[in-house]
């Protein structure tokens, strides 16, 4: 049961990473992969909108903020594993890559794929985040109190 939950958590993490990844980055990291497995579409790539919700005051009741574009697809490998692709934006090839990787992560190729694609992708995205955080840190205000002469 726990192993299943761990697997679920891990899948949630890689799917989230793929969804947020810049399409060009994922394409570059998988460019040299020539042995993509055979698959059939369960749902060919489809572009749609997801209504993003916020909360009043940040913590209160939900409200509809506006939509974002999302592309999704689902496929089944010849070996039976089902892969889902949900990615931000309108890039159908990106969604296909995400679904294939999701399916292949359920096969024996998982470890190799993690080393070759997911880990470098996560590292790059983390580096982008850290770079913006460092620039923000440089704009943090240090207040100092002026000493006031009393006489």
């Amino acid at each position: 049961m726990t192993a299943q939950n761990d697997q679920g958590e891990a899948r949630k993490r890689w799917m989230s990473l793929l969804a947020k990844s810049p399409p060009a980055r994922l394409a570059a990291l998988t460019r040299d992969m020539t042995d993509w497995p055979a698959f059939e579409w369960l749902r060919p790539p489809e572009v749609g909108g997801v209504m993003v919700r916020g909360r009043t005051g940040g913590t209160g009741a939900p409200f509809n903020l506006g939509e974002m574009t999302v592309t999704r697809c689902a496929l089944r490998l010849a070996t039976g594993e089902v892969g889902h692709g949900y990615v931000q934006g309108r890039d159908k090839a990106h969604a296909e890559r995400a679904a294939l990787i999701d399916a292949m992560m359920q096969t024996k190729r998982a470890d190799a794929l993690r080393r070759a694609v997911l880990d470098p992708l996560a590292t790059q995205m983390q580096a982008d985040k850290a770079s913006r955080a460092a620039k923000a840190a440089a704009t943090k205000v240090d207040f100092f109190t002026m000493v006031r002469g009393e006489d």
Partner: peptide, 14 residues
């Protein structure tokens, strides 16, 4: 023209 795929969980701005 976009089909509505669904809605998100409320975003955590905190």
């Amino acid at each position: 023209t976009l089909p509505r795929i669904g809605h998100s969980r409320p975003v955590d701005t905190g």
